[in-house]
Amino acid sequence: MVLLIVGFVAFSMFNFVGDPIDNLLGQERTLEDVERLRAQLGLDKPFFVQYWAFISNAMEGNFGMSYRQGRPVAEIIAERAPATLELALVSAVFALVLGVMLGIFTAIKRDGFIANFIMTTSLVGVSLPTFLIGILLIYIFSVELGWLPSFGRGEVVDIGFWSTGFLTSSGRLSLILPAITLGLFQMTLIMRLVRSEMLEVLRQDYIRFARARGLSEKSINFRHALKNTLVPVITVTGLQLGSIIAFAIITETVFQWPGVGLLFINAVQFVDIPVMAAYLMLISVMFVTINLLVDILYVAIDPRLRS
């Protein structure tokens, strides 16, 4: 259902981005050429017929041919997806692990100097836009210090259809800066969320009762409090992880990362409708999947939802 609507919105938008024919044929075109190509691509048919053709083809995994590259879209995306997914995975892990850990830390030591320092600096992460962080990181670590590469994926190794950067040292080094750039905002957000939830939970009666029973601080904080903290955190985190993939566009542009985000930007420039449509569908599939996972996780954590 969600997918159908996204497809519909995406499709109706394409009527306004420009006429792909202009870009496909050069300056020296005849009216006949235009008509012929239009008929060949099916662009002369009414909107709903086009939409229906797109949906039914997409069901079979056929997203059509890229106008610009003349290759099947599915193939292009499959080629680019590993780069984006690896980047998203690394930055999601970075955001989650660091975010949750720092959140717990700042909640437990809420008046400590270090906790206050972390909270203050985290404001930077929330308020700076992604591209600026990317550029700053490139300036510091690539231009000034020269430690890390400033663009691209480095060397990649092909394993079947998947090309990975994890196996070479240049691939791993290239991942660091984009992953931090992409994950920093999510990390600070998760951290602040975990902190405020945790503070709330620590005030609850069952925590006081756990203390009164003489349980150790470790058990109270990590067994009793953390689990209760996670329930609301998961919702937001789930949506945020979805947006890591969706908003990889900016990071990929800054770092010239050869992923689907960059592909999409290029497609927009050339009005490559099939690529854009496929990309948007892909993103919405991911959002739906993540939301499903979030709901399943909910039930796994909270027994009250099981009855």
Partner: peptide, 23 residues
């Protein structure tokens, strides 16, 4: 903490909120 729970225990007012709902 050694004393709490071991020698002295406490019962709270609201049984709805004094048990951890997830365990």
């Amino acid at each position: 903490r050694e004393l709490r729970g071991k020698k002295i225990s406490m019962i709270f007012q609201d049984p709805l909120t004094s048990l951890n709902p997830l365990l």
